[in-house]
């Protein structure tokens, strides 16, 4: 079983990707289900905001986990799931942002602008969302080619900044109990720390040769 996972055929990778696609839609399906069945609690808009925010963060962390996981396991096919995971993080970020603009503020743009400028946790959250847009826009193979591997990679290192901003966004909004944001912060610190260790030891960029080949 373990050995079988070491190298998957293209077809097997496709199946894994499809399964992951469905799994990544489960949080959204849950929200829809709860919404239909009056299960969103006394403050449904807050519930939806928290849920979509949580899944954005989880999506980002899982995306960031791919490279370390691949290095430790040697399962190179994992890289083929990364783009989809990143796009799902963006998808939930869009839902989160839309919930805020539409359901929470109801397009009161004056209030939104004031919020973004005045409230640090919204400022960093908004910044994280804006920075995600170019990454999503350049996620296609065609865009990779147009930018060139090196530039593309440089741009996509923004994801580290975005993840940090995302965790800070969560940290600054809680009233007192920082247990939850602390868990996200520790996971993120581990994922970024692993990269630093790799870099220091091997002295080469984190991206593996296999990935480069894919770009060329």
């Amino acid at each position: 079983m373990w050995n079988a996972l070491h190298s998957l055929s293209l077809r097997q990778t496709g199946i894994a990707k499809a399964a992951l696609f469905v799994a990544a839609l489960v949080p959204l399906a849950r929200l829809v289900w709860l919404g239909i069945n009056d299960g969103l609690g006394a403050n449904p808009i807050e519930f939806i905001t928290y849920a979509t925010g949580t899944w954005t963060l989880i999506g980002l962390l899982v995306t960031l986990a791919i490279t370390p996981l691949r290095k430790f396991s040697g399962w190179n096919w994992l890289i083929r799931l990364r783009r989809m995971l990143g796009l799902f993080a963006f998808f939930y970020a869009c839902l989160h942002f839309t919930t805020y603009i539409w359901l929470d503020q109801f397009f009161d743009m004056q209030a939104v602008v004031k919020d973004v400028i005045k409230r640090p946790f919204i400022t960093v959250g908004f910044l994280a969302f804006v920075l995600l847009i170019p990454l999503a826009a350049t996620s296609t193979t065609a865009m990779m080619k147009r930018l060139g591997g090196r530039n593309w990679q440089r741009l996509h290192r923004l994801v580290y900044t975005i993840a940090v901003l995302g965790v800070v966004h969560y940290w600054w909004l809680v009233k007192k109990d920082i247990t939850q944001p602390l868990i996200y912060a520790l996971v993120l610190a581990a994922l970024l720390g692993i990269r630093l260790i790799f870099k220091a030891r091997v002295g080469i960029p984190v991206v593996m040769p296999g990935h480069k080949a894919e770009l060329e």
Binding site: A42, N43, I45, K118
Partner: peptide, 19 residues
């Protein structure tokens, strides 16, 4: 007088859509 981290100008009455 806003809370340092969020506005106090409006509120959501539980059960209502608009603030």
């Amino acid at each position: 007088v806003d809370h340092p981290r969020w506005s106090q100008a409006r509120e959501r009455r539980i059960g209502e859509f608009f603030k």
